[in-house]
Design a binder for these strands. Structure first.
Lengths: 149, 149
DNA sequence: ATATTTAAGATGATTTTAGTCCTGATTTAT
DNA sequence: ATAAATCAGGACTAAAATCATCTTAAATAT
């Protein structure tokens, strides 16, 4: 459907949560509540993120999740692909031979271009950027609220 | 899966075929063979394209399909959305209220930007452009073939 | 030991995808 | 008038993807 799945959306929310609380570990339960993601489902998402090397986990008491690397080095694209697999806007971009025409198809370069542009946007934002953006939005909203009084 | 479905791919092939043979009507059977699309499936695709006002049809002997408008006025985006419905890279772009955070979400503007970029690419190519591109590729390939001899 | 957490795998309901097939409506040719 | 050619529309289906849930195992802190 040319649309991000829940997997990708939930992964972004989870990593963003960890990025906003980089100083400590976060529990599945906590992330689930704060980010509005079903707990048992989130558990699967976190497993993928761990395997992808984006987050790390510690089991047992005092355990939980935390970023494996600085938030400034984790992009949206990386986070999404960790749970959804590599993004290919059209099957013809997966590899040679997926399209009958393949070379010789005039639409192929258009999809390549579209995907490149998409990647530029998704790679242009790190989790650190997004945490800062969220803070800015927060500040703007509370100022608005103060004015309304 | 953030990927174009067969519907969209087939629609593009079909409209491209009509654009390359704008002087006459094309049969389902013919398009199916030439563009490698299952015949009975293509029938559905053509119905959507007709309803969307991109192609016109005539029934009966000497009937078939043809473009409803000049190929230069039909974009890739339009063709795809005719069969897949409006493109929304993320559910949060469908309308307000689809996302729990909605306003206040720092990721939302990123998706808006990504979608804008995608639309720019898909709207920047008309069916006329693509037919010309295909001809250029054809010419280049036959020149290469001649050199190889 | 025990309580707390994540890891991994099995399972399942619902929706989407990617088709097929049949009947009917329309148009043209004879 | 009738037959032949074509598209229109709807019913149907198999397989895959989506979006979860649940249970058991493993690791860790106290």
């Amino acid at each position: 459907m040319l649309q991000l799945t829940r997997d990708g959306e939930y992964a972004v929310r989870a990593v963003l949560h960890l990025a906003a609380h980089e100083d400590r570990v976060s529990l599945i339960h906590e992330i689930s509540e704060a980010q509005d993601v079903p707990k048992s489902y989130l558990s699967k998402i976190m497993q993928s993120l761990t395997r992808a090397g984006i987050v790390k986990s510690r089991r047992g008491a005092k355990g939980g999740f935390f970023l494996a690397r600085p938030a400034g080095s984790i992009t949206l694209r990386e986070t999404i692909e960790a749970v959804e697999g590599p993004i290919h806007l059209n099957v013809c971009l997966i590899k040679k031979g997926e399209c009958p025409k393949d070379e010789g198809c005039p639409v192929h370069p258009v999809w390549r271009e579209a995907q490149k542009k998409l990647f530029e946007v998704l790679e242009g934002k790190t989790m650190q950027d997004l945490v800062r953006d969220a803070e800015a939005i927060q500040k703007r909203n509370s100022r608005k609220l103060a004015q309304a009084r």
